[in-house]
Write a protein that binds this DNA or RNA. Structure first.
Lengths: 252, 252
DNA sequence: ATCAATTGATTAACTGGTTAGTTAAATTAT
DNA sequence: ATAATTTAACTAACCAGTTAATCAATTGAT
């Protein structure tokens, strides 16, 4: 009961290897999808025997579910923070938009896994994941609705359906990252370059400021204030991170 | 050279089977993705021997590329029509937004394939498809840019980056369809129901009207006019179509 | 404290079903 | 006939999942 600093107690080690497996799984699944992912590759890059995946997780799907869950939990929690009542309803919306952008920017695996899941949802069911998502997103959506309706009530926000507001907020962000690799083919610059990212980040909030608020000028001012208040998070090298995804070490 | 009406000239037949294969391939790839798709299933639902796939298309990837190309070509062509110079710049933008929505609505396979490709693009290259996309989308993007810059020049549209306009237009649409199956879990209604679709379609254009135009009221009026001008296309039963996707006949 | 016995963690090697791709023979239109 | 089209049957590779054995930490009896 004393050991904590350097000890390698049994279930401490076990815990570490489980985490190693999960990390590797998130990587693999987010780049190759459920059916494209290879259990050998996951075991390989976690430097662990393949049988361990089945020891800790029922099967490939179980591992997948665990990976999705891990990522989702990490994300939703931090998203809720921006809905603090100390901000005005309009500001809460703008803040959550920025938070959403930054979350995608810094946690690419989340975005990638979500994309995959959204595609998978179309055809039949996806195991236990629906349950997981309902639990995770319901509170987030509720906050969004509350903020929109508050804003309309006190005259800050234009009279409009809260759901449509939500789509406009999330849509542009998701689409930017979703389409960037493809857009790169038809654009004269790299959408993942730091300059382009910064520009898009600002444009997204300013666009909302211009569209949502009854007083357009006030909306723009608020957008700029929020931008000053929430600086863009540092990300080493988005482009490189993405390209490295498929450059993993082959297990013997 | 005479036969056209009922004749089954040799390469007429061949042409038909090729098309049958392509249709089946589009279905399969759009529901299961490249690695999830099964060549046996494609052959089966095209009622054709599997070897034919390899006779007409080099391999699975080749078939995939052909499927993507077929869908993309069909789509881009019809998208360009809305950029007719007889409309004002602002109207061209609103029209293309609506056209984009309707295109996704009526040709789900396109949306699905594009999603898959966007995910695939992230990790390494995707064969010959980049070339294909550059060719298809460059003119479309150019039109979009032209319309935005025209509108800014004549004062119709707010001073803003054309690229950001494009993201806002496409983003909300793509995200709506992308997220609908998942949103269904956390919403009190079905986003693919006809009522929800109609609502979203209107909201999307109205939102743009409110955000893009220097004269917001005029923008809203224009949005409503365009909506009257382009009625929502009839779609039998979106929900059913989607659910049927995975209920394909197993070949013996 | 010492050392079996026990329990949990990890591995190498294997299995069986699946699936992309091939081949050689049969059919069909001209 | 003959060249293009279509098929049935096959194969080689792959890959999710298993098994039986090994290794290492913990327990507990002395």
């Amino acid at each position: 009961m004393i050991s904590k600093t350097k000890t390698r107690t049994r279930d401490d080690r076990a815990d570490r290897t489980q985490k190693k497996i999960l990390r590797a799984a998130v990587q693999e699944f987010s780049t190759h999808g459920l059916s494209g992912a290879r259990t050998d590759r996951i075991a390989g890059s976690a430097k662990v025997n393949k049988a361990l995946l089945y020891y800790y997780f029922k099967n490939k799907q179980g591992l997948y579910a665990a990976a999705v869950e891990a990522v989702a939990a990490r994300v939703v929690e931090n998203a809720l923070a921006e809905f603090d009542r100390k901000y005005s309803a309009g500001e809460r919306l703008l803040r959550s938009a920025l938070n959403h952008f930054d979350r995608i920017l810094t946690q690419r695996e989340f975005q990638s896994l979500m994309q995959q899941e959204m595609v998978r949802f179309r055809s039949g069911k996806s195991g236990s994941i629906p349950v997981l998502f309902r639990a995770a997103f319901t509170p987030l959506i509720a906050k969004m609705r509350e903020a929109t309706e508050d804003g309309i009530r006190n005259g800050e926000i234009c009279q409009m359906d809260w759901l449509q507001v939500m789509y406009s907020i999330f849509g542009a962000n998701v689409f930017y990252f979703l389409s960037a690799p493809m857009m790169e083919l038809a654009l004269p610059f790299r959408p993942f370059g730091p300059k382009a990212l910064k520009l898009r980040r600002e444009a997204a909030v300013q666009f909302l400021g211009a569209a949502l608020f009854t007083d357009r000028a006030a909306g723009m001012r608020l957008a700029n204030r929020v931008l000053r208040d929430m600086p863009m998070p540092r990300v080493k090298n988005v482009q490189a991170r993405i390209e490295n995804f498929h450059a993993r070490r082959r297990p013997l």
